[in-house]
Nucleic acid binder design. Sequence first.
DNA 1: ATGAAAGCGCTAACAT
DNA 2: ATGTTAGCGCTTTCAT
Lengths: 347, 347
Amino acid sequence: MANRKKKSQAETVTMKSIAEEAGVTLTTVSRILNNKGDKYADATKKNILEIAERLKYRPNALVLGMQTGRTNTAGVMMPSSSTFYSQVISGIHDVFMKKETIMLLSWNDRSVTQQEEVIERQIIHRMVDRRVEGIILRPSSEKFERSYFEEIWERNIPLILIDRDVPTISTHFVGTDGYRGGEQVAEYLISLGHQNMLFAGSGSIVSSSIKREAGFRKVLSESLNAYCQRTLDSTQNSYQTDLLECMNQRSHPTAIFCYNDDLAMGTAKILLDAGFSIPGDVSIVGFGNLPYTDPVMPLTTVEQYPEKIGAEAARLYFSSIRDQTPEIKRRLLPTDLVVRGSTRSII
Amino acid sequence: MANRKKKSQAETVTMKSIAEEAGVTLTTVSRILNNKGDKYADATKKNILEIAERLKYRPNALVLGMQTGRTNTAGVMMPSSSTFYSQVISGIHDVFMKKETIMLLSWNDRSVTQQEEVIERQIIHRMVDRRVEGIILRPSSEKFERSYFEEIWERNIPLILIDRDVPTISTHFVGTDGYRGGEQVAEYLISLGHQNMLFAGSGSIVSSSIKREAGFRKVLSESLNAYCQRTLDSTQNSYQTDLLECMNQRSHPTAIFCYNDDLAMGTAKILLDAGFSIPGDVSIVGFGNLPYTDPVMPLTTVEQYPEKIGAEAARLYFSSIRDQTPEIKRRLLPTDLVVRGSTRSII
DNA sequence: ATGAAAGCGCTAACAT
DNA sequence: ATGTTAGCGCTTTCAT
């Protein structure tokens, strides 16, 4: 009889094998191991438990999942690019740990543009096939996700979006309140006495950049004498030139708000190389509070609490796999300013 | 009849439901969808395929896994702490993507010391219960892993260790050749003309630190006039004092090799704060090539290629879930020196 | 060219 | 206090 099972695996221990060893039925074993055996004789119980222990029995979660639909498994898909997402995943993980749940993880940012959708669809399929109870993901695009969204939605699988909102679909969402973050930066820079400022963003495509700028400008526009002289686009080749052009004016900006930490550090480098001092000549603020261990240029930035985002998403996950029709929840978590050495008061 | 299945899920599409719709048997559907239907009439085939497509049928991987033992699922457990491990995971992921495999991921560094073993055991159980075909993990300790190693080993589940070797157990291992990395650093610093050097390590417990130091010292010991004046222990409170004490000697060390990048950056900070210039007064070398975007202090360091480590581990994973008794493989991947601005020639 | 039936490991309704 | 049986979704003999 050819062995259909994997390998010559030292005879997998099943309830059946325990039952045989104990001389009882499968059912008895099942009930005792699942604590539904109030009625069983203590001797029987003890015996079964002892055998299971000795044989190191482990339930087959696949069978359970197949029967009940409860797999205690979630699908998580994120870009691997940034440490921000690792931290989000940590937040999710912490909550999952307490709930017997484990995640099937996949990245979604390594793909070639053209094949992107195909690959992500494939990932979704791998998750669906394994009957995840819900999916948490960071959309890789604000456009075509409708395709895989349908794969999920049509199967009634709860979906929680992270970080990047997709206006066209109605589902749970957890992200950062970038608008408020932008406001905080403006308020802070104004309090330091800055008036002539710059915003360095990421063109008009990245919505997070847009929101941060909007909050920033909103506060400046309400201020008496502070203003944003110009918005620089870091995706342009001319970024460096544009930046230095601004800085070489007789009365140049005294503060620059960069839409993320990477840009802030890059901008700092350009300025330092050009002979400017930070924060002597210009103050610089980033966004994201990436774990830089930079001894020389501690960056003033905005903390987004990625772990909290993850934890909140996990909580939404659990509430939506329980309730039948939970109302759609969208959460924008508050940010906090982290003041370090790249900014200074000019009053 | 109470619905045992999850939710009121728009009637899950099964082979059975397709069979009913098509007016054939389950068997027929199974064979056709699995391309084992050479004998079937084209019309039948076309019809079944069309229905499956229209109903968006998806196979139930749980059933398949239960029947064949092949779940195409791997268990991956790593510390979440460092970006090094995110990159290792990326490497694993890339290989998995090509092989229909997906990972059940868990971190193992958040735990309280005492409960560490319990928690990791629990994680292993969650993976085993879901019938992962193999496990890739970074041992959280070089001591008690024997416990959960047995959980895995006794079930004949292939195990691949990452980064940290556990001498007591005989299984696959992929890591960095830290000894060679240490040698490279020494060779480089010698070529720059340095003679009086320092090694900053992590006490005598962390084996990676020990190996790097050993390679470093080995080369120095073979040199005519270069030497390592002292080994500083960064885990001691006295680290800063010890460091400055060394540096305040009349002829102080001109180069410091720190066992990792974090320590290198911390050390740089201490030195800069104390008025030393880098690399003017001292050259500093780190280890790991963490993605710092540091404009001011580009660190000379050693690249470990974490993604390659992950990819290699994934390859070992596949070879060992296929072969019955593959020979134990241990791989130490070579490192490369990354020269940046924190070192200079003093010749 | 297609179907019937057994079985994978387990739960739960239905006996006794 | 314990057993019998059906069934979860599917693959795989073994028929016809």
